[in-house]
Design a protein around this nucleic acid. Structure first.
Lengths: 189, 189
DNA sequence: ACATTATCTTGTCGTTGGCAAGATATGCTG
DNA sequence: CAGCATATCTTGCCAACGACAAGATAATGT
């Protein structure tokens, strides 16, 4: 089977599912998740307007697949950051900035089926990668793993969300990694 | 002019603008901001499908008005919390939970005209109320107002956002105020 | 080779956002 | 109080969308 992964000009696309997810990332990057249109994705992929339905059922199905992909990418990125909680936090913010489309969908549960078992599994993998850094911290007088993990998650998630929303004051958000580092350090001194 | 504020059965509604904003809060509370439909709001208010356009221009205009209202409500709620930064943070989370519809729109700039001057003014009022608590804190060795305000804002915004997204582990989010208090304290001990 | 299945197309329906043109109420000015 | 200007709401329309049904075409298995 030649040209299995390449764009196929004939009746069959070759890898339409992947092409549609990539087109969705592109479209969301341009206009946000709310303006996403299945017909636009079909046009971008060069197929008919009803082709996406076969792979994802409906719009929520496509966004569900995108959320699963996002949580897996996040788990991978956090895993690559090692055991240092500071670096994990920086990686979290970097993921939000670099994969804005995935991130926006992942935390907008009204847009997809957040109770889907595949979503729950991917979300659990990302959660484990995040909690790993808290467990590796040196024990201190006021350390309480559950609360510390929640505080760390909250502060990086809040920083990332505010930055994506354009709500940060102009000066502080120029370089997301530096800003994240400063804010996270504030949590641990 | 009798029944100025009440629902008017005749050709004119009486206070359609307010009724539409209230209907929007109700509808967003039921199905989220993405599923909002101007025609549905018109039906809820008992007017024709094109009536909303006169007051808000288009859908983004209505959501812009809702964001302005939200930032003003937030500024008021933070002002009522006093000067204690902990209580301001708790009030921020309580606002997000009690006014979920406003909050979700306020921080989804893709849905409305975030550069509208009225939005900018209301946003500035809320920001001033938030920074007031940081300025009132006792000076310490590692206190740096700009960074501290950003850290405090990030942690309460992140906690609120994660809670609204249903991403928090089951046990920790039962009572939002208690959870917020514990997380914010972690920032200042 | 043939049948079965997966993939994609065409056609259609109800809903939505937005615009244009008209109807009706309100207010202002003399 | 008469008459005009304005604000508010309605009806009618169009293009785009999501979803569904039915059919066409390619790939796979036996």
């Amino acid at each position: 089977m030649l040209r299995r992964m390449t764009a196929n000009r004939g009746y069959h696309h070759g890898d339409l599912r992947r092409a549609l997810l990539a087109a969705a990332v592109e479209a969301i990057g341009e206009s946000g998740p709310a303006a996403l249109s299945l017909r636009d994705l079909a046009r971008r992929a060069g197929v008919s307007h009803a082709a996406p339905a076969h792979h994802f059922g409906d719009k929520a199905g496509l966004l569900t697949a995108l959320a699963v992909e996002g949580f897996d990418l996040l788990a991978e990125a956090l895993g690559r950051a090692g055991d240092d909680l500071l670096e994990i936090g920086v990686a979290y913010v970097r993921f939000a900035v670099d994969h804005r489309a995935h991130f926006e969908v992942m935390f907008a549960p009204g847009l997809y089926r957040a109770d889907d078992p595949e979503v729950a599994a991917a979300r659990a993998r990302a959660g484990a990668a995040l909690r790993g850094g808290v467990a590796a911290r040196p024990a201190g007088p006021t350390v309480e793993p559950g609360r510390d993990a929640l505080a760390a998650w909250s502060i990086v998630h809040g920083f990332a969300t505010l930055r994506l929303a354009g709500a940060l004051p102009p000066g502080s958000g120029d370089n997301p990694e530096d800003g994240a580092r400063a804010v996270i350090r504030r949590l641990f001194e």
